[in-house]
């Protein structure tokens, strides 16, 4: 947990603050933030990240395109990715699953659910 650097990607500054606060409460204090997929990719070029939490609906590059881009890069093939989005239609969830997300949470989420899913993804 101590050396886990998490990248929180969401276009809503409110959601980023909530996610970061929730992560800190759960003991994950090393958190980076990005406002969309493109911004996230730029930040990942500079800083090594070992867990990604991403929204779906974002401008410039949405979460699905971001996950697809990551999975196409050799170094991020097995990077743990958790999608946190309002999209709760089953077809959307299946699409995210196919794109390569490791787990999926529908907003609004509880801190317990976020913590539990991070632990599940890390446990593989």
């Amino acid at each position: 947990m101590a050396d886990l650097k998490i990248l929180a990607v969401d276009d809503s500054p409110t959601m980023r603050r909530i996610i970061i606060n929730t992560l800190k409460r759960a003991g994950y204090s090393d958190v980076l933030e990005a406002s969309d997929g493109r911004d996230a990719l730029a930040k990942m070029k500079v800083e090594k990240v070992n867990f990604v939490i991403t929204d779906w609906n974002m401008p410039e590059m949405d979460g699905l395109a971001f996950v697809t881009a990551l999975r196409s890069m050799g170094e991020y093939k097995s990077l743990p990715i958790l999608m946190v989005t309002t999209r709760s239609v089953k077809d959307d969830i299946m699409e995210a699953l196919k794109a390569g997300v490791n787990n999926y949470i529908v907003k609004p989420f509880t801190p317990d659910t976020l913590k539990e899913k991070i632990e599940q993804v890390l446990a593989g």
Binding site: S88, I93, N102
Partner: peptide, 23 residues
């Protein structure tokens, strides 16, 4: 404008346990 047309505070089309089953 970027949005989910089904975004809802209370009505989730698929609940978390069903998502967990899929994964």
């Amino acid at each position: 404008r970027v949005y989910d047309p089904h975004a809802d505070l209370f009505d989730k089309k698929t609940d978390q346990s069903a998502i967990d089953d899929l994964f």
